[in-house]
């Protein structure tokens, strides 16, 4: 009786998971990412790591590009109401760049844990990914930041809580 109930709950959980999850192969993942009639410029870099090579974890040295640019400035199209997060997902999918994010229920927003296998706290305890819109840092999550046409979005890796990329707000 109890065993059956446990099995039923287990099967329900698994089927719920498979229904709610979107599973794609790497080829599908790069295609059909949507878009829109608006464009913005996006770049991803970890130049600050180059100045802090002593703090970098030894295992991560292989993922750092020589010039620190993970993705050069690229035009990305998007539709009205889409956020910095949507654009990052689209760009990383198109370019097949590794990216891991995490939904933080406490702030009801998305946190970018790592891009191209470079993760938060890989380069000192104050390091992690942050973003700037038109050269300005914002103090809320990237999935709440609605973009406008022509915006310049920079994803930057900071080694000093955003101070070294100008994204820190006092």
């Amino acid at each position: 009786m109890i065993k059956r109930a446990i099995a039923a709950v287990f099967i329900m959980a698994i089927s719920l998971l498979t229904v709610s999850c979107k599973i794609e192969s790497p080829e599908e993942h790069g295609k059909n990412n949507g878009g829109g009639d608006l464009t913005c410029t996006v770049s991803i870099d970890c130049k600050t790591v180059l100045d802090n090579m002593d703090k970098l974890k030894a295992s991560k040295a292989s993922v750092i590009p020589e010039d620190g640019m993970i993705c050069e400035k690229t035009e990305v199209s998007f539709s009205d109401g889409e956020t910095a997060f949507d654009v990052l997902v689209r760009l990383t999918r198109e370019k097949n760049i590794h990216m891991e994010y995490n939904k933080v229920p406490a702030y009801d927003s998305v946190y970018i844990e790592g891009i191209e296998n470079l993760y938060e706290m890989d380069c000192g305890e104050l390091s992690g990914w942050t973003y700037l819109i038109n050269g300005e840092g914002l103090n809320y999550g990237c999935d709440q930041c609605v973009l406008e046409d022509g915006d310049v979005l920079e994803w930057r890796y900071t080694c000093d809580l955003g101070r070294d990329v100008g994204a820190y707000k006092e």
């Binding site: 999850c21 979107k22 599973i23 794609e24 192969s25 790497p26 993942h29 993922v63 997902v89 999918r93 590794h98 990216m99 891991e100 994010y101 790592g114 296998n117 993760y119």
Partner: peptide, 15 residues
Amino acid sequence: SHKGVTALFYVNNNP
């Protein structure tokens, strides 16, 4: 854990 360079497939955009 989604670390690693070899993505086999993607679930909800996470590799």
